[in-house]
C-alpha cells in the first residue's frame, strides 16, 4: 500500500471539499479541528479557532453576561470540537487540513527544484515548541479583554487577523481581499501590517521548511490536550527499533521522540501531525504501527521502505 499516494489524494480531496464544498451546499459546522478558513467564501466548514475567539461560542464575552444559554452553546461547540478531535486525532492535521495541504504542495515544489530543506538545530526546535501554547493563550485572552476590559474591538479575532491562512486561502476562491491594507484606524493598520508581514514570513518559511506553520499552530496545541484520549494511537515496538533515524529525518515537524524512545510503546507526541511518514519510512517490520480503536491500520514494513528508495528517481 503506497501510503503517500493515498495521503496525497485524501489531502487533495479534503482541500477541494473544504474550500469549495460550501458552494455545493456542504455545511460541516463551526468546530472543525483544521484550518478550513472561514474567510474563504464558499468553504464547507469553519476552523474552530474562529469560534473560540468570537462572541457566540468563544471568549469575546463579558463575564457578567455569561448566561446559561451562552455557556451551553459555547460548551456545545467545544464538545463538538472535542469529539472530532478524539475520533480522528491529529489526522486532521496531516490528512485533512487545507492549509497543511498547501504547505505540503509548496514543499513538493521545493523538492522538485532540488533545493535543500532549511535545517533547524534541535535546540531551536525545542525553543519553538512553546510558541504555539503562547499563541493559544493570547488567542483566548485578547477577546476576554475586549469583552471585559474595554480593549478596542478592532483587536477582535486576534489570531484570525494575524493568521497567514487569512490572506492566502481566499486566493483559491479568487479573492485577494486580505492582501489589502485597512487604513481605517491605527489598530487596523498595525494589525494589517503584522498580518501581511507574517504571511510573507510563513510563505517564504514554508517553501524552505516542511510544514513550517505547524510548528506554531495553536490549533495543534489545543488538539494535543486530547492526545491521551484520542482514538488514533501510535505504537512503537521499542526492541525492534534499529535506531536508523529514518523516522526522525522524514518527520515534517521535527519530532525526535519517536526515534529516541526506548522504553514506552505509546509514542504519540504533541507536535505530531499524524502524517505517518515515519511509519512508511521505518525499515523494520512492525516496529511502528498506527492503531485506531485498538486495530492496526498501518504498520511499518521492510519491503515497503525498500520500495520507497528503489524507485531511484528524482521527484
Amino acid at each position: 500500500m503506497k501510503l503517500h499516494w493515498i495521503r496525497f489524494w485524501v489531502q487533495a480531496g479534503s482541500f477541494f471539499l473544504l474550500t469549495y464544498g460550501g458552494r455545493l451546499g456542504l455545511k460541516l459546522g463551526h468546530c472543525l479541528p483544521c484550518f478550513s478558513c472561514p474567510y474563504v467564501s464558499g468553504c464547507a466548514g469553519h476552523c474552530y479557532l474562529m469560534a473560540l475567539q468570537g462572541p457566540f461560542w468563544g471568549t469575546q464575552v463579558s463575564l457578567a453576561a455569561l448566561g446559561e444559554k451562552y455557556c451551553l452553546s459555547a460548551l456545545g461547540m467545544f464538545a463538538g470540537f472535542a469529539l472530532l478531535t478524539v475520533i480522528f486525532s491529529k489526522t486532521w492535521c496531516g490528512w485533512i487540513c487545507p492549509f497543511g495541504t498547501l504547505q505540503d504542495w509548496i514543499g513538493s515544489l521545493r523538492r522538485k527544484l532540488g533545493i535543500r530543506e532549511a535545517e533547524f538545530s534541535w535546540k531551536l526546535t525545542d525553543r519553538l515548541k512553546p510558541v504555539k501554547y503562547l499563541l493559544l493563550f493570547f488567542l483566548l485572552l485578547i477577546p476576554l479583554l475586549i469583552g471585559n476590559a474595554g480593549l478596542h474591538s478592532d483587536f477582535e479575532l486576534p489570531f484570525c487577523q494575524l493568521c497567514p491562512a487569512k490572506p492566502l486561502m481566499p486566493v483559491f476562491a479568487g479573492k485577494f481581499t486580505y492582501f489589502l491594507l485597512d487604513l481605517t484606524n491605527p489598530v487596523t493598520v498595525v494589525m494589517g501590517i503584522i498580518s501581511l508581514s507574517l504571511t510573507a514570513f510563513f510563505l517564504v518559511g514554508m517553501f524552505f521548511r516542511d510544514r513550517f506553520f505547524c510548528l506554531f499552530c495553536p490549533l495543534l496545541a489545543l488538539m494535543s490536550l486530547f492526545d491521551r484520549v484520542g482514538l488514533i494511537r501510535f505504537r512503537k515496538k521499542v526492541d525492534a527499533c534499529l535506531g536508523c533515524g529514518n523516522c526522525r529525518r522524514v518527520c515534517p515537524v521535527e519530532v525526535r521522540e519517536v526515534h529516541d524512545e526506548k522504553e514506552k510503546a505509546d509514542v504519540l507526541q504533541p507536535e505530531c501531525i499524524s502524517c505517518f511518514r515515519c511509519v512508511e519510512a521505518c525499515p523494520q517490520d512492525n516496529a511502528l504501527s498506527v492503531r485506531w480503536l485498538n486495530r492496526s491500520l498501518f504498520s511499518s514494513a521492510r519491503e515497503r521502505a525498500g520500495k520507497l528508495v528503489e524507485k531511484g528517481k528524482l521527484p
Binding site: G114, R116, E117, V250, A281, V309
Partner: peptide
C-alpha cells in the same frame, strides 16, 4: 547492509 536511507529531501544535502 543495515537499514535503508529513505530520502525525503532530494537535494545534495538531503
Amino acid at each position: 547492509l543495515a537499514g535503508v536511507p529513505v530520502c525525503d529531501d532530494f537535494s545534495e544535502s538531503g
